[in-house]
Design a protein around this nucleic acid. Sequence first.
DNA 1: AACGCGACCTGCGAGC
DNA 2: TGCTCGCAGGTCGCGT
Length: 329
Amino acid sequence: MPELPEVEVVRRGLVSWVRGRTITGVEVLDPRSVRRHALGPADFIGNLQGARVLDVVRRGKFLWLPLADASAEASGGASTAGGADASGGAANVALMAHLGMSGQLLMQDAEVPDEKHLKIRLRLSPAAGMPEQLRFVDQRIFGGLFLTSLIPTADGGPGGLAETPLPLIAEEASHIARDPLDPHFSFDLFYRRLRARRTGLKRALLDQGLVSGIGNIYADEALWLAKLHYARATDRMRRADAERVLDAARQVMTDALAAGGTSFDSLYVNVNGSSGYFERSLNAYGREGQECRRCAANGIVSLIKREQFMNRSAHTCPVCQPRPRNGRW
DNA sequence: AACGCGACCTGCGAGC
DNA sequence: TGCTCGCAGGTCGCGT
């Protein structure tokens, strides 16, 4: 399932294929994949036709393509609904993508048969040696595409990771905090806001408004690496502990990114949910009943425990991530 | 206001 | 064999 590293792999792959190209055709094969576009599939299609892709930007697990209205540029800046502004092609609208649980963005040649779960097809202006189509494939339909405005960021910094960062952010991603791999991520701000919460540490890590990009897998992995229990009280967290778990999150995501980045040269924008990283490097997630590797290295036998948590699961080592007593440490 | 849970989805594996 | 059920999880919206 795509978390931050997988989405970043997609961003890097996608940018070389789509930047500067114009969207010449749009097919919505399943309207549920554009349900977050409030004005419906017809509006989605109409506003995307003729738009030129300026960049591919990511914050947390949100990915968006700032667009210029190619027809407006050609006709000297005439604005159309939802299109470019009067300055002629400057981006104020973006195509937003969220991969949800199972979404994929694939570059495909026209003759490649439709994928079983193909939901949306974008045709792009011809470019030498590049596939014609950008396809959104999604089995479980938690993800989707929609159009959103670009607005100024709250802190004046760039909206997200991009080739040419803009001080604008997709409106639908503006409630999302910066992610730990963002050069403008502020630990001080994170720590202050963490302490202001009265909740458990894992809940906080999964809250995209506090820090983005961390999902259930990386939360468990980061907590294991930092030797912290998921129920640790956030309002009493010591700075050093908060730093340790943030560093751990950065570490596991950087490792996963390195592992997932090996297939950039593939025609596909790789969003294979289980990048090789998962099979090899997980220490907690999905390892219920197996030995904690860190404890084993110290000659201690301790089995990873899985508990119900937030309608999902939390994996911990009962020895090196002991549960706090009364939330106090 | 902040927190927390259910709904949204489909495929798969376990159990009967 | 074929059915049902539970589980997986990111995000939004609503109830508390």
